[in-house]
Design a protein around this nucleic acid. Structure first.
Length: 260
DNA sequence: ATGGCGTTATGGTAACGA
């Protein structure tokens, strides 16, 4: 099973880019973030025509997540569990389903800037809920992949200029500690598992300041695997191709292969 | 330090992103 995550920065603006990458890379399961459209506006037909089933959790203007799969989608959950601890959260940032023998979640974690402030507090509260839910899922002892735009650079090795980003929400100790909590309970971060000591590789490059041309990037899109999923992990990579295309998203797909 | 982009919702600017 080839499984990918991609923050597309508007599915409507990016439809041609997404369709051409689906045809070229042929992933079985794709976790999308930042759809920026309501469920009814999601361009289902052209994607279904490529053989995908679709589950969408959309929202007007901002956020929005989806799961595409060549396998049937079952047990779809929209919204991150634990909302009672964060009743102000009305963002579409989480969708989960079981497909092809794997439980998958598409995650669009809050950015959290500026620090400090209510947006950073929201990020940390949301991460606390994610940690809790990741623990609940771990107890199921299933193959589980929690993937998406985590808006966290796990270490300074994931930042082109750590000094410049020292005050950014993506690099705060509190953000990194919560990300590590998920790893410490037993999840494997797929890309880092294959590259424990580098090289530096990124999944996001700002539109501004020639960031792509200068490779001024961040690695913030991650695939976190339960032990049962990690047992099957055979390959992982970052596909820079889509970032170089015309009208590109500022993120590029990160993928892994599970031998299931 | 902040925005130099880009998208959306708009009908000239503003919010938001990371």
């Amino acid at each position: 099973m080839l499984l990918a995550t991609w923050n597309v920065n508007s599915i409507k603006a990016r439809l041609e880019n997404v369709l051409s990458w689906l045809k070229e890379a042929g992933p079985d399961v794709v976790l999308l973030q930042e759809l920026k459209c309501v469920d009814e506006a999601f361009p289902r037909e052209p994607i279904e025509d490529l053989g995908y089933n679709i589950a969408v959790h959309g929202q007007k203007t901002y956020n929005g997540v989806a799961i595409l799969s060549k396998f049937p989608l079952e047990d779809v959950v929209t919204g991150l569990p634990g909302a009672e601890s964060q009743p102000e959260d009305d963002h579409a940032r989480y969708i989960e389903a079981v497909t092809g023998g794997v439980r998958v979640a598409s995650i669009y974690l809050p950015n959290g800037n500026p620090v400090p402030g209510p947006k950073f507090d929201y990020k940390l509260g949301w991460m606390d809920r994610l940690v809790s839910h990741a623990g609940d899922l771990l107890a199921l002892e299933e193959r589980t992949v929690l993937a998406g735009d985590y808006n966290v650079c796990p270490t300074d090795a994931d930042v082109f200029d750590p000094v410049r980003f020292a005050g950014d929400a993506l690099c705060q100790p509190e953000s990194r500690a919560r990300f590590r909590q998920i790893l410490n309970m037993g999840y494997t971060e797929a890309w880092r598992a294959f590259h424990p000591d580098g090289p530096q590789e990124y999944s996001y490059w700002d539109y501004q300041g020639g960031a792509w041309d200068q490779n001024n990037g961040l690695r913030i899109d991650h695939l976190l695997l339960s032990p049962q999923a990690a047992d099957c992990l055979s390959r992982c990579g970052i596909d820079r191709g889509p970032r170089a295309a015309p009208k590109a998203s500022d993120h590029t797909p990160v993928w892994c292969e599970l031998a299931v």
